[in-house]
Write a protein that binds this DNA or RNA. Structure first.
Lengths: 337, 337
DNA sequence: CTGTTAGCGCATTCAG
DNA sequence: CTGAATGCGCTAACAG
């Protein structure tokens, strides 16, 4: 059997409470006794049982993270960074993968994190009801995809500004016929697709370009979806000379579709993405870069702050910088059309 | 305060043990009482505290997963699939990100999972000492990257066969000068780099091609590393006409390097990768496909089996199928040389 | 079928 | 500075 606190106490000849205090660095233990305890604990390979200390102390030292599709670069990277911060602070990370519709429903129906976490980081935007459910947990809440929900600390970017930069870049190159591959705006209650679309429309308007609903196609935030969307755009009577994809993954799908159609990028058509996916450099994709790992790390840090000073820290909102990264997929339209 | 088991018991007018039995689906509770308990629990929003039940029951209902770099597609995808299986079975997933060297050291030094998990899934290969440390936990162990360590259930692929297929493909196309971008074999104690290298050498030998150490370059399993490696290969006096990259990420880096050097793929040089990364199709990369998500799911399932029938199930070894996927990055050498 | 009795292993009072 | 007592919320025998 694994050693318990009493084994250590017995070995050193002190009481369990003293061992508890000593090992947690609490004041009120003489240096001599403390060091003997630390040594004995190491000898016996003792670690406090999380279950027992949680039960007794009322804290789980665990942070829950709910994310859709960890396999996607964006979420995986955020998760990765958050884990580093949390584990360095002695917190465990409990992962809930809420990609499949059904998993998500089950999660909010049963709320398995109840009594299991001290704080929660959501990498997806809860809708009203879900946000309410999470708030009922009574723990600090944060999210990294930028929906300003009450009670949540949010770490995000200015989606509107990013999308504006992307579309303006195309306009400045001389494009007048600009398509958009959008992210599904329905199920995830995400603000990004909405904001990015609005930016697209704003920039077109400000450039005096009439928008054409046929040039807006949904790409579902996936490579496959992007490819389908691009194919659809090419079938439009008067196809676009440039396309703004709301994510790099969709942009890559678009590039694939263009290759299959034997169209050259950027000569025949320009493409700009969003995210600066790790592989975007490889394919030379012009895109809007956002600090992905930093968002995860920062969200985790803010959560830890709230844990340290309960009540003192108000849920805040931090906006991370973005920037246009020029690479090889954008150029002026063929004949200045 | 959140409702406790006694609140439910009191509400229904039964004892706490009956509530416990009823809610966990144990036999020995009348249908009538059970349904009243279920209803009351729902009313009160009661969920059992994990800490308390773990402490009392001796099981944590949690599986630990240790992984390097969750942000990488391969690991993220495995993790994703494993989580689905585990959460469907009522288990939580505790994630430990052991990418940074220092995090890894700390993990094995302190072994924070002690008393915290019922089983452990390792997405990295522990070396001897680490394997021993993990075995000392006394819980079912599994790994998905194929190192046959004693005490571990391993789910993997036949790396040798996969690499052989890749290199043979190049040989069959007529290439005689074949380079390899290898994965770092040092720190991670991975068998994949070793096996894949061996396959490379075997196939060259069987084709009567003398191997040239200058054609073996390390790519560190990253895009950047692959790019550097390719650049290095191009600087060799008599550069290769084809390259086998031990991962798709490195292959993509190689493609980038080739593009920068204005070399055409596959006309000037052929490239074959390994993994079938989600974006390989986008860049048209010829590669060896392996079922990534399935490996995570299967490993999780095997762990659950061992949890269900303690002792009965021996750690096993399952090998998943691989296949060569022909796309656009391989062709015969320019002048049949 | 149900209630009673004991802990699970620790953190936290309160004394000393 | 240290020890003894108490309880965190639940599960697992054991009775009945």
């Amino acid at each position: 059997m694994a050693a318990s606190i009493n084994d250590v106490a017995q070995a050193v000849g002190v009481s369990a409470s003293t061992v508890s205090r000593a090992l947690r660095g609490k004041a009120g233990v003489s240096d001599d006794v403390r060091s003997r305890i630390v040594e004995a604990a190491a000898d016996l390979g003792y670690v406090a049982s999380r279950s027992a200390s949680s039960l007794a102390g009322g804290r789980t030292f665990t942070v829950g993270v709910i994310a859709p599709y960890v396999g996607r670069w964006f979420f995986g990277t955020v998760l990765d960074a958050a884990e580093d911060v949390l584990s360095a602070a002695g917190y465990d990370l409990l992962l809930y993968n809420l990609g499949p519709r059904e998993a998500r429903k089950r999660f909010f129906a049963e709320l398995p994190v109840r009594k299991r976490v001290d704080a929660l980081l959501s990498l997806l935007i809860p809708d009203e009801a879900e946000g309410l459910a999470l708030r009922s947990l009574g723990v600090p809440l944060a999210t990294t995809v930028g929906a300003p929900r009450p009670g949540f600390t949010v770490v995000g970017i200015d989606d509107r500004a990013g999308a504006q930069a992307a579309v303006r870049h195309l306009v400045n190159l001389g494009h007048r016929r600009i398509g958009m591959i959008a992210g599904a705006s329905g199920p995830l209650h995400w603000t990004a697709p909405v904001e990015r679309r609005r930016a697209y429309l704003d920039v077109l308007a400000e450039a005096g370009i009439a928008c054409d609903p046929a040039l807006e196609v949904d790409g579902d935030y996936t490579v496959q979806g992007g490819q389908r969307a691009m194919t659809q755009l090419l079938a439009v009577p008067n196809p676009p000379t440039a396309v703004f994809a709301q994510s790099d993954e969709m942009a890559m799908g678009a590039l694939r579709a263009l290759r299959l159609h034997r169209l050259k990028v950027p000569e025949d058509i320009s493409v700009v993405g969003f995210d600066d996916h790790e592989l975007s450099e490889v394919v030379g994709l012009t895109t809007i870069a956002q600090p992905v790992a930093e968002q995860g790390a920062e969200a985790a840090r803010l959560l830890l702050n709230q844990l340290d000073e309960p009540g003192a820290v108000r849920p805040g909102h931090v906006t991370m910088p973005i920037r246009l990264v020029l690479r090889d997929t954008t150029a002026p339209p063929r004949n200045g059309r």
